[in-house]
């Protein structure tokens, strides 16, 4: 069983002022190997917190979360992370960024080089190996981040708004890339996004989260991701079922946001 299982996961933050924030409350879910989960939700509902716990950067207040029956305790190579802004090491070239993980494991440089070339080709950055990363565009940087994560061959890929900072066109290309990689590698993926369309297009499963306290509000099983492997993404968007779902979720999030605003004022 190579699943990600979360049981009664709770996360309570204490601010230096002494206030407590219930970021996650009683989270229970199971993610099977090879599933692609997208997570939607209004700002501050605990999406990043969930991902950080899964990555092992922070420890939950209570409850536990296991991957392949092993309790998550600290960061590990089997869980790769892609950040919103890439978080690339700008003092390294593209190739050095991509093989960072392998270098940390002291792998044979010749083998590493071959792998790097392969991955650069997959993400469409062939020939950019020696380019310094600060010379890349935002989309290219996200591709490097993706390659850097995937070269380590993780069981689970965590993406926190990886396409959030990109323009519409680049974003669409990257969505196709994510789908392509998902299909070719069969990895388990959790992808957080603010875009309802993106969540619908990419997610095999979709969680809509609600804030205060952060919890899973609604769960969907969607067909669009598997459609997207064959069809053009733009065609799917014209699909009637797609637009119905989109409206429904938008309405849901809109209501939540309004509630928060009402509470705040």
């Amino acid at each position: 069983m190579s699943d990600l299982v979360s049981q009664n996961l709770n996360m309570i933050f204490k601010t230096p002022k002494g206030e407590t924030v219930h970021a996650l409350k009683d989270l229970n879910f199971t993610l099977k190997k090879g599933e692609l989960l997208t997570v939607l939700g209004p700002s501050g509902c605990g999406k990043t917190t969930l991902l950080n716990i899964t990555a092992g950067f922070i420890k939950p207040t209570s409850g536990n979360i296991t991957l392949n029956n092993k309790e998550i305790d600290g960061p590990g190579v089997e869980r790769g992370m892609v950040f919103q802004q890439g978080a690339l090491f700008e003092w390294l070239t593209v190739a050095e960024n991509v093989n960072f993980g392998l270098r940390m494991k002291n792998e044979d440089p010749i083998k590493t080089q071959k792998k790097v070339d392969e991955w650069l080709e997959i993400v469409g950055l062939k020939g950019f190996g020696n380019t310094p990363t600060y010379q890349l565009s935002g989309g290219m940087q996200q591709r490097v981040a993706l390659a850097r994560c995937l070269i380590n061959d993780p069981d689970l890929i965590l993406m926190d708004e990886p396409l959030g900072a990109l323009d519409a066109l680049t974003r669409e290309k990257m969505q196709s890339l994510v789908l392509k990689i998902w299909k070719e590698t069969g990895k388990t993926i959790i992808l957080i996004t603010h875009s309802v369309e993106e969540a619908l297009l990419l997610g095999e499963r979709l969680y809509v989260m609600a804030p205060r306290p952060g919890r899973i509000h609604k769960e969907y099983n969607l067909p669009f991701a598997s459609m997207g492997l064959k069809e053009d993404l733009r065609e799917i968007k014209k699909n009637k079922e797609f637009s119905e779902k989109r409206e429904e979720i938008l309405e849901m999030i809109w209501n939540m946001e309004e509630e928060i605003m009402g509470k705040d004022n």
Binding site: R79, F83, A87, R148
Partner: peptide, 12 residues
């Protein structure tokens, strides 16, 4: 985020 990235890439 850079430290996190390095961490989850397996750096000690």
């Amino acid at each position: 985020s850079k430290i996190h990235a390095a961490h989850s890439l397996g750096a000690s």
